[in-house]
Each structure stands twice: as structure tokens, then as C-alpha cells.
Amino acid sequence: MLKQLFSKLTIIDRYILKRYLMTFSTMLLLFIPIGITVDVSEKINKILENKVPFLKVAAYYLDFIIYFANLLFPIFLFLSIIWFTSKLANNTEIVAILSSGISFGRFLRPYMVGATLVSLFALLMGFFLVPKASDGFNNFRYMYLKGGGRQEMRQTSDVYRQISDTEFIYASNFSQEIKTGYNFVYEKFDKEKLLYKITANSIVYNPKTKDYTLMNYTKRSIGELDDRIETENVKTMKFNFEMDDLTPVVYIAETLNMTELNKFIEKEKQRGSSNINRYLVVKYKKYSIPISAFILTIIAVSVSSMKRRGGMGINLAIGIAIAFAYVFLDKIFGTLAEKSTFSPFIAVWIPNIVFGILAYYLLKNAKR
């Protein structure tokens, strides 16, 4: 399909497409070293203080490149299109192209081909490369760079989970390092009727045998006339959960590929997770970011295809303002969805909808 598409491209199409892809790649290659330099200057004291091995630091910055290239790809794409399209306009190349009888819509075709290639690349990165990079990036940051990072990685206090349709658990606190939970409560239901309740001062996970040891174990079985109570100082039992499932790291959704993420979200929905909106935002962004390539391409071409008295600087100033407005809107609604009951799907797609309308308006004016 791509081969047929490229065979239909004219010399002008290939010229614009080549500039599109080369400028975008150059923009990434220029800004990534700057980002690494700034990050190193901020974090070098922490890295030296914690005596982090060089190989771990090198792996962190490899993950850093992929993580931030994906995060800031809409801005880099937008600015690179404005840059080279403004140069075409200043050299009156666009005037010559349109004067030859080519319509503005036809002039946009190589830009749309470029946006298709970039969005496919971003989609594949978001599905496969970015999750692994995000895992390495966040693990390093929490382990070595944040004060108390190991404690902040997980929700370890007042953990309440529904582990199946009929089973609920609670613990006042979990210690991930020693695999221990405190003030543990387990409840088993039959529809809305409580069958029995287990409590323990502490619960310890045994990785080798994959079971749990409960201290000061008490089981109250609910009867029709009276309850039956069992107590033991130490009790070993098996449960249908693991501690890593009960206290996932806060950035867990970013580290999963699409198949794993869908399964994880379904499991967390059953458990009544309070972070479900955060996970859904991550899921929907995997699709919305690639779509933004088309919207931002149309806006960038519409803004920069006109030769202005102020030259390229005016176009870049307008482009930077629009790019940061897009990022601001994206962050505002993403945070709103994570922290409230606002729909994650709507929150993620609002920036694309708003800027899609802007793209349509600017394109109509550019054609005139």
C-alpha cells in the first residue's frame, strides 16, 4: 500500500515530504541532547550521592530519550513543519507551486503522507517501545532521584481492593520490602450476604511457597442463629492475590503494552481501584497523540504558508504559542480526568477536537 502511495507522488511531493521528515528528524536530534544536558545538570548531584553505576545511568538516558521524544513529539513536529514551510514561503516556492495550477488541498498531500508516516511510527512506539522505556525511566527516578522515592512508588496505606466478585480485602499499610501488610481484613460474600470475615494483625507473603502467613488470625463465620469464631496465633493460607497486584506502582499503566494495559484496566475495575481514570487517560493517549500529527500538520501549514512581513520569526512565534496552548490544554484536562470524575475519554480528546476546529478554520482561510 505504501509502495503504491509513493509511486503516485510527484517530484514536488517528494521534495516536500523529504523536507518534512528530515526537518522533524533534525529537530528531534537537536533538542534531545539539550534535554539530556539540562537533565544531567539537575540530577548529577543525586546520581553521585547515590553512587549510581554508570551502566544504569546510561540505560536511564536511553529510556529518557524515548520517553521524552514520545511526550514532546507533537511540539517537535509542529515547530519543524512551521520552520521548513516558512522557508518555502519566504523563498516564494509556495507561490510558484500554487501559481502552477495546484490547489492548496493538493499542496497539502505530501504533508498528509508525512503525517501518516509519523503517526504510524508514534503509534508503534506508544504500543511497544514507550512502555518499556517508561518502566526504566520511572524506576530509576524513584529509586535514585526522589527523596523517599521507594515509598512514593506505590499506594501502601489504607489499601482496599475487591479481588473477585465475592472477595474484598483491606490493609492499613503494606511494606513492599518485607512483603508484609498490617491490620489485614478479608471478607467473603455470597451476593450481598457476608459468609465469613478473617482478620489478622499482620500478613506476610512467602514468595517460595506463594502463600501467606497470618499473625493473630481470627475467622468469624456468620451463622443464622450465632457466629462461629476460630483463632490461631499463626495461620498459613493461600489467597487469590499477590502483593504486587494490591499495591501497583503509580506509573504502572505507562509500562504496559496495549494488550497488558487492557487486561490490567479490567482487573482494576473489578477491584474498585481509585486510580482507574489515570489508567484510562494513558490508554486513550496512545491513540490521541498519533491523531494530533494530522491536526497539527494542517495548522502548521496554514499558519506558515503565507509570506509575512516579519518573516519566519512571526510564524515561529505564532507556532510556539499554539504548540504550548495545545500542551497546556492537554495537561489541564488530563489532570482533571485523573483527579475527578470527569470522563477520561472526553478529557483526552478535547485538545484534538478544539485544535481540529482551529485547523479547519485556518485551512479555509489559507485556501482563500
Rank of each mutant, 00 (worst) to 15 (best):
S7H: 07
K8V: 06
R14A: 00
L17C: 07
R19G: 08
R19T: 11
T26R: 14
M27T: 13
M27R: 07
F31V: 05
P33L: 00
G35N: 06
I36A: 01
V38C: 04
N45M: 11
L48T: 11
E49N: 14
V52R: 03
V52C: 07
F54H: 06
Y61E: 04
Y61L: 00
D63M: 15
Y67V: 04
Y67G: 04
F68H: 15
N70V: 03
N70E: 00
L72V: 05
F73T: 14
P74L: 01
F78Q: 05
F78H: 11
L79R: 06
L79T: 06
F84V: 04
A89H: 04
E93V: 11
V95A: 04
T116K: 08
F121Y: 03
L123F: 15
F128R: 05
K132D: 07
R141N: 13
M143Q: 14
I163L: 02
T166M: 10
E167L: 00
N173L: 12
Q176G: 09
I178F: 08
K179G: 01
Y196Q: 10
I198F: 07
N201T: 10
N201H: 03
S202A: 07
V204S: 02
V204P: 08
N206A: 02
K208W: 03
M215G: 02
N216L: 10
S221M: 10
L225H: 12
D226F: 15
R228P: 01
E242Y: 15
D244Y: 10
P248H: 08
P248D: 05
V250Q: 08
Y251T: 04
I252K: 09
E254M: 00
E260D: 00
N262A: 14
N275E: 15
I276W: 09
I276K: 02
Y279G: 03
L280R: 12
L280I: 11
L280H: 10
V281I: 12
K283Q: 09
Y284Q: 10
Y284N: 08
K285L: 08
K285M: 09
S288K: 11
V303S: 06
S304M: 11
N315S: 13
N315F: 05
I320R: 01
A321S: 13
I322L: 11
I322D: 05
F324E: 12
L329G: 07
K331N: 10
I332R: 04
F345N: 03
V348K: 03
V348A: 02
I357Q: 01
A359M: 06
Y361I: 15
N365G: 11
N365C: 00
